[in-house]
């Protein structure tokens, strides 16, 4: 009994210490920033640039921005269920429009643009130069899923207009969840070509982009939406201002290969 009681008591003490340390771990990270702390749902395609902006924002203002990354559609679903968070930044403004329709987002602000490119390993070993090359049986093509990712949706919409969607759909070896999964497949050699946003290429120096008509005409406009009814509206707007500021967020977006707002029109 003595040993069992010792085991039970000891485990409770250990648990209390562990939870205390975990809570302290989170508290230390919050120091100086808990008042203005906001949460942003951010598309996977914007993850690298958002990491940099959030780090700059913490350094410049002392405010913490929590991030939740994933495919745009999945983020929209999470927002709809939880109704938590302050900002919603999908990879395409059509998702912001959907969020507005569902009364999840009150206002939105443009941030940057991205263009669709076909990505291949450096040196283009499969000699992919035009759209018809993507349909060749010896080319393993991967795309992001049109149901979950903004780029997949945009690719499908663009090619449906030109009448090429059916052929590309048939030629696609696999659909992936996010645009970064597509780039990773090409990098690892699991695919010969992939359809990604040009901005994502910044993280993959081993890959090169090929402009292919009519995909090169497709541009995604990135907007950030403010979550309806958030209690931290002012803090959210402050971060949006930072994202739109030419000397802060816009500069970082440019560095990561996005087209800035100034390039519009």
């Amino acid at each position: 009994m003595h040993r069992t009681a010792l085991l039970l008591g000891g485990s409770l003490i250990c648990l209390a210490i562990l939870i205390g340390l975990i809570a302290n771990h989170a508290r230390v990270k919050d120091e100086g920033g808990s008042d203005g702390r906001i949460m942003i749902y951010c598309a996977a395609s914007n993850q690298a640039v958002m990491e940099a902006v959030v780090a700059d924002y913490l350094r410049d203002t002392g405010r913490v921005v929590q991030t939740q990354y994933g495919p745009s559609q999945a983020l929209l679903s999470q927002l709809a269920i939880s109704r938590r968070g302050e900002l919603f930044l999908p990879a395409d403004d059509s998702y912001v429009a959907m969020a507005k329709e569902k009364h999840l987002v009150s206002q939105s602000f443009p941030i940057a643009n991205m263009r669709i490119v076909v990505v291949v390993p450096k040196g283009n070993p499969k000699s992919i130069h035009r759209f018809s090359d993507l349909l060749r049986p010896d080319v393993r093509l991967v795309q992001a899923n049109p149901e979950t990712a903004a780029i997949g949706k945009l690719t499908r919409e663009t090619l449906r207009i030109s009448g090429d969607w059916h052929d590309l759909d048939q030629a696609t070896t696999a659909y992936r969840t996010t645009v970064t999964d597509v780039a990773n497949d090409v990098l690892l050699g699991a695919a010969d070509a992939g359809v990604i946003f040009d901005a994502v290429l910044q993280s993959y120096p081993e890959l090169e982009a090929i402009d292919v008509m009519p995909l090169q005409l497709a541009t995604s406009r990135i907007e950030v939406g403010v979550v309806l009814g958030t209690s931290r509206h002012d803090a959210a707007i402050a971060f949006v201002d930072y994202l739109q500021a030419p000397q802060h967020g816009q500069q970082t977006y440019l560095q990561f290969g996005f087209q800035s707002l100034a390039d519009d029109d």
Binding site: D30, Q47, Q66, Q68, Y69, T178, T180
Partner: peptide
């Protein structure tokens, strides 16, 4: 963890989500 806790660096990031974060930014 990805869905319920999110993947905020230095706050809710555990090693399994670190792999996801690195993978998502092309840092294979």
């Amino acid at each position: 963890i990805l869905v319920f806790a999110g993947v905020t660096r230095m706050r809710t990031e555990v090693l399994s989500t670190s792999v996801f974060l690195e993978l998502s930014t092309g840092q294979l």
